[in-house]
Design a protein around this nucleic acid. Structure first.
Length: 553
RNA sequence: GCCCUUGUAGUUAAAUGGAUAUAACUGCGGACUUCUAAGCCGUUAUUGUAGGUUCGAUUCCUACCGGGGGCACCA
């Protein structure tokens, strides 16, 4: 419809003023009372035409009213010269039919059809707990994965676990010393802390830990390397259990240990050239005019690849393995300067590494509320937070179903992350941010479940427009779903979808509160179809946000 | 010091350069007793400050003020 209107306006501009090639902005008015679509084109061309915008709008509207067709009820002029389009009831009925036909395909598009998109997110630090920041990253990442899929692309997901460091060697040292037959995640965490302390205590321990680190880096067959592999497997299993609870998974992993080797090779190959030697290290010095990026060390003076070189290796591995047309990666915005340098260096090695990569960064989650932090002992570990929120959800749940309660808890957490525009810090106050009421994940779920419960009772109805039907706000909003999805994909911003689904739910709940859907009137089938279209749209929208949907609440 | 980023109701957030700045939470008040009350209805703004660009600025530009982050061998 947006396109149809654009074409109509373009033709009208040509016919009445002889204007061609004008960028025509067609948008959804903020206030639906103004119509279903609006264009401000009369305002923007008023200068070129040297005419009053209102006059131009009137001329265009007169012409548009002649050519509007059956789907548009009327074209009017308002304010300083906006041209508003009000759609005909029959158009909404047709849209309901489309929704019910397309089902899960409703809303998806072909923006990236035929392309390969690689998404990297959630990259954990193995041997360290998966904390709330990782949940944030995973939530945004998983939604981007769903959005990429809805754009018609072939999507591959990967994660970049940090599996090796001196810290890991410290933990391995402690665990080997204790000689436990069974190891657990908790023990790994404790060993990490204990090893850090012991490392600085005496020289023998110090040397031994360094030796372990060397063996791990070089993959030397040894007790410690074997043990390290076992610990790594345990960590991955832990990571994957959390992922599955969050409703996410990966096609592959690229480990930091692999990327380091690859990155070092590439950096050395491009030194001198892209990189330069300085004080025994290999560094990248950005061009003079790039004041926004700093010089960075890629290989340190001991000859080991730094984080920067590892990311060069990662880029190389991503593009060699998957040849993506678009490579998205998600990190927190603390790393923005780091990736600015890495990508700037990368474009001199292989231009597409930089041109096809999109860095999506999110803010950090800070804790404000007393309740949750004290409950978690000040450590925002993901699993414990999910458990705590899950308990709260279970208290409210009617049938105390654990699985359903967890779905509600996960939605509450994810919603609080996705509702904000990515890139901004989230002041995470469990008392307010993490809500089960009002603008919240559970609100979206509840609205959907409620609609589905009506459908279970009354069937999906038929989208045949009844006599004298007054178009509702709900119908007016439903038709915009595909545009919102497209917008979210273009901007890689799930929050547009969150805002839309909230408004849609509000309309539904408001309508529901004042209407009886299942009744004896001739309108009942249409009202059921409207309910079904709402439920379908919500279901598709929640899928795009990777929010779970319980069967009842 | 340099660079990046951010500033909207008491609070948490929204708003491709467009019309009366949108919601929720909190507080107060209300309706129904009919398909799920995690619901519905009613009740709050000098968009940090000062300029500029524009027919039109929360949005773009400049300066200042306040948060957050980065700036050579951590990730």
């Amino acid at each position: 419809m947006e396109e149809t209107i654009r074409t109509l306006v373009a033709d009208a501009l040509k016919d009445s003023f002889g204007l061609e090639g004008i960028a025509i902005v067609v948008e959804e008015p903020k206030d639906l009372a103004h119509g279903d679509y609006a264009t401000s084109v009369a305002l923007s061309v008023s200068k070129t035409l040297e005419k009053n915008p209102r006059e131009i709008a009137n001329t265009l509207a007169a012409l548009l009213n002649e050519k509007k067709g059956n789907d548009i009820a009327e074209v009017t002029v308002a304010g300083p010269g906006f041209i508003n389009f009000t759609l005909a009831p029959v158009y909404f009925a047709k849209t309901l039919e489309t929704i019910l036909e397309k089902q899960n395909e409703w809303g998806s598009n072909e923006l990236h059809k035929g392309k390969k998109i690689l998404v990297e997110h959630s990259s954990p630090n193995l041997f360290k707990p998966f904390h709330i920041g990782h949940v944030m990253n995973n939530t945004i990442g998983q939604s981007l994965v769903e959005l990429a899929r809805a754009s018609g692309a072939a999507v591959t997901t990967t994660s970049f676990p940090s599996d090796i460091s001196l810290g890991v060697a410290k933990a391995i040292f402690i665990l080997l010393e204790k000689g436990n037959a069974e190891i657990s995640i908790d023990m790994l965490g404790q060993a990490y802390v204990e090893g850090t302390k012991r490392y600085d205590e005496d020289e023998t321990t110090h040397m031994r830990i360094k030796e372990i680190a060397d063996h791990l880096y070089a993959q030397t067959p040894s007790d410690e390397y074997e043990f390290f592999q076992a610990c790594k497997a345990l960590n991955i299993a832990y990571f994957e259990s959390i992922l599955s609870r969050l409703g996410s998974d990966f096609d592959s992993y690229i480990y930091e240990s692999e990327a380091g080797v690859e990155g070092k090779k590439i950096v050395l190959k491009n030194t001198p050239g892209v990189f330069t030697e300085s004080e025994g290290a290999v560094v990248y010095v950005p061009a003079e005019d790039r004041k926004d990026i700093n010089t960075a060390v890629f290989i340190n003076s001991q000859g080991n690849p730094t984080y920067e070189a590892k990311d060069i290796g990662l880029l190389s591995m991503k593009f060699n393995r998957y040849a993506p047309d678009l490579s998205l990666f998600v990190t927190d915005n603390q790393q923005v300067p780091h990736f600015a340098v890495v990508l700037d260096a990368a474009k001199h090695i292989n231009d597409e590494w930089a041109s096809k990569s999109i860095h999506i960064h999110h803010g950090r989650m800070s804790f404000k509320g007393e309740k949750m932090s004290s409950r978690l002992g000040g450590v925002p570990v993901a699993q414990e937070m999910m458990d705590a929120v899950g308990e709260e959800a279970a208290v409210r749940a009617k049938d105390k179903d654990i699985v359903q309660a967890d779905a509600i808890a996960i939605a509450a957490i994810k919603f609080s992350i996705l509702r904000a525009a990515a890139g901004k810090d989230i002041n995470f106050d469990p008392e307010t941010s993490l809500s089960f009421e009002g603008d919240s994940g559970p609100y979206l779920q509840y609205s959907t479940v409620r609609a589905q419960s009506i459908l279970a009772k009354g069937g999906v109805g038929t989208p045949v427009l009844p006599e004298n039907w007054t178009t509702t706000t709900l119908e007016k909003q439903l038709i915009h779903f595909p545009e919102v999805v497209a917008h979210a994909i273009e901007e890689w911003s799930p929050h547009f979808l969150v805002t839309y689904l909230l408004e849609l739910s509000q309309s539904f709940n408001s309508w529901y509160g004042n209407t009886k859907v299942i009744d004896d009137t001739a309108e009942s089938p249409y009202k059921l179809a409207l309910t079904a279209a709402f439920a379908q749209t919500m279901k598709n929208g929640l899928k795009l946000l990777a929010l779970p949907l319980p069967s009842k609440m």
